[in-house]
Amino acid sequence: MTRRSGTAVLVAWLTLVWVGLWGSVTAANVLGGLAVALVLVRVLRPSPAGAPAVVSPPALLRFVLRFLVDLVVSSLQVARLAVGRRVELRSGIVSVQVPGASDTLLTVLADAITLTPGTLTVEVDASTATLYVHALDVGEGPEGVQRLRASLREQARAVVRAMGTAEARSHPTPLGRTGDRRREGQP
């Protein structure tokens, strides 16, 4: 997408949101929204989003459904911990690398990780496409950390399948085989 057409899409989207927030399609709402959108785009000058995402509808649907299930599971899990007796949690921060991921993809993945069971993104290194994820409970020893990293990678793969750029899809390194931070599970 060129910068110009990207801006046009953004203006159209902002206008749509404006009209949606007012709740009815009238000439005044559409024109007002258009005016606000144009001013916003002019003032904020959003940076281009980078390589276009290749959206695969079935994979996207699977990702969204899985995400909703995860959200319910994680809410119940936090609810149990919040209401129940105090338990000793073994929390930790684990890194996961997503080679070839665009900024957009990293954003979606970081968002999804935060809303799914037991994990929360605390730091992002966009230059190496690495997310640092806080886990409520990493489990016992090195195996626990590896299991956690494996499930994070699985989540990353799901996002790439759903909306990865061509580069992320065809990246020579399968997700995170190399270049992971070492120190597996050292206390």
């Binding site: 809410s75 919040a82 949690l89 809303l115 929360l120």
Partner: peptide, 21 residues
Amino acid sequence: GLVRFPDVFSRMHAATKPSTL
């Protein structure tokens, strides 16, 4: 959860998941 969890990170878990759902 915000009140009962022990540190900032676990409190953020409480602040995001159940409140979003």
